[in-house]
């Protein structure tokens, strides 16, 4: 079995460099045959693409989508400096 450390590095690089994702801030953890993806994305379509790219970069492993959607709220309280 490939060392999990290198699998995680490969998935993380794929997510950053693949044109479908270009996501630099996704945390990738590999435990045995399980891959966990954590981080925030701005829409559901991007979340699916991240999972697709991760699956291609880690064939045969089970990818767990633990990504959350950034909820852009209306502006809140202002800060006085």
């Amino acid at each position: 079995m490939e060392t999990p450390h290198y699998v995680a590095a490969r998935v993380q690089r794929a997510l950053a460099e693949d044109e479908r994702t270009t996501e630099l801030g996704i945390r990738v953890d590999v435990r045995g045959e399980e891959v966990y993806l954590r981080g925030q994305v701005s829409c559901d379509e991007r979340r699916h693409q991240i999972v697709n790219v991760a699956r291609e970069a880690a064939p045969g492993l089970r990818v767990h989508n633990e990504l959350t959607l950034v909820e852009v709220r209306e502006p809140g309280e202002e800060e006085h400096l």
């Binding site: 801030g25 925030q40 701005s42 950034v70 852009v72 709220r73 209306e74 502006p75 202002e78 800060e79």
Partner: peptide
């Protein structure tokens, strides 16, 4: 945006 989680933040000078 993922830090402020709002469309923008307002700072008053």
């Amino acid at each position: 945006l993922p830090v402020i989680k709002h469309a923008y933040t307002v700072y008053c000078l």
